[in-house]
Simulated assay, not measured.
Amino acid sequence: MLSAKSAETVRATLPAVGGAIGEITERFYGKLFAAHPELLRDLFNRGNQASGAQQQALAGSIAAFAGALLARPDDRPDAMLARIAHKHASLGVTADQYAIVHRHLFAAIAEVLGEAVTPEVAAAWDEVYWLMANALIAIERRLYQEAGLAEGPSLREYRIAGRVRETADVAVFQVRPVDDGPLPAFRPGQYVSVQVELPDGARQIRQYSLTGQGDGMLRFAVKRLAGDPAGEVSNHLHDRLDAGDLLRISAPFGDVCLDGGDGPLLLASAGIGCTPMVSMLDHLAAAGSTRRVISLHGDRDQASHAFRADLEQLTAKLPGGSAHVWYERPEGEWPADRTGLVDLSGLEVPAGTTAYLCGPLPFMRTVRAQLLDAGLRPADIHYEVFGPDLWLGREA
């Protein structure tokens, strides 16, 4: 791992680098896109760039990786690396792109830190970068091989066979391969990258959790994203695409997947975070699972709750299943103890439970803290983040 000499230098300079990492990543992306505008047009999420979320995620991952190397020099933070690698593989990232990133990132570091970047400091952080990059390249190469794909973009053309309105702002797309070949295998909880061509010619890519498959079709749900910036891909899918239209879709990826054991499960979601949980419940019901399965979900109200009927129907098929739902502003009569935010204080969580969380970061932080208080091991609590992982590194 990190050499003793570099470790000493990184430890001494980590506060300065960490304090400036936000400015460094902002300059880095500016340099990268000036030199390679096609990356912003066709690979990076323009909305996350505009909001600053991607810059925050990159800054957090670099600082967290360096910190992990110093804290545990003989261990590689594979949980953090696997999450990044799965996202990269779904986007078709290639090994040669790491050299491009390196060039512009270190130019940004030199600009921001100036004379503080001595040859010794540059060499130490260069070692950190390539330890992280080469580890990601190796993991991504394995992911491509396991999926039977060549390294790089491997989007397959699908035709929209149907579109179902789930709620006012959530639509379910049913897609079938144009080549009539077999559907790719996927594990419950995984996602696909979906590429659309926008009116300005950009080919933007977003990830959406698979909610199931059947009749030769994959299913995924898309929530319309409002705000500033609004979700340009989600809005494009909602407003412009319907049955008969074409999409380019990746093989399934994602490291937060249902385990194959027989112990108790807890599936906790909020908002559109229910989509990977629906996939897990669908798999468990189809397999006739007798596992203890506790499903928790929080939403604004009944009308906003996507897959509400699926949650009820799939839970009813599980002998050991139970579902608990909280609404912030419920419509009509609703139990007082299920009004407001999700709260596990009144629930018994069995020993040995494996938990999966998906939803807004404040929701997942709260639920995770309650699960730890209930006695669950940190290693048994898994989470999925839609978009840049701003939690990444904190749990590495």
Rank of each mutant, 00 (worst) to 15 (best):
E232I: 14
S154P: 00
G227L: 08
L344I: 14
K223S: 12
L91R: 07
K5W: 01
L69T: 05
V178Q: 10
F44Q: 13
D245C: 13
F65K: 04
P184E: 02
L281I: 11
D215T: 02
A53Q: 13
H283W: 06
R308D: 12
V367W: 00
L281C: 11
A168N: 09
L266C: 05
P15E: 03
T290R: 05
R41E: 12
D255I: 08
S154N: 15
S250R: 09
I381C: 06
Y158M: 15
A379R: 04
D259A: 06
A82K: 09
N235D: 02
D380A: 10
L40F: 11
Y98H: 08
W334C: 13
G332K: 09
C274Y: 02
E151W: 02
T366Y: 00
A226S: 14
E8A: 15
A150F: 00
A133Y: 00
G261M: 15
A243F: 02
N235A: 10
V278I: 15
C257A: 12
A309R: 11
I62S: 09
D301T: 12
R141Y: 07
L43E: 00
V233Y: 00
E197Y: 09
E151I: 07
S295C: 15
W125A: 12
I21N: 01
F253D: 05
G181W: 01
L237T: 14
A336F: 04
P184T: 05
P199K: 06
L376M: 11
L198I: 07
G212Q: 04
L296N: 03
V385N: 02
A107R: 09
K223T: 08
L241S: 11
R219G: 07
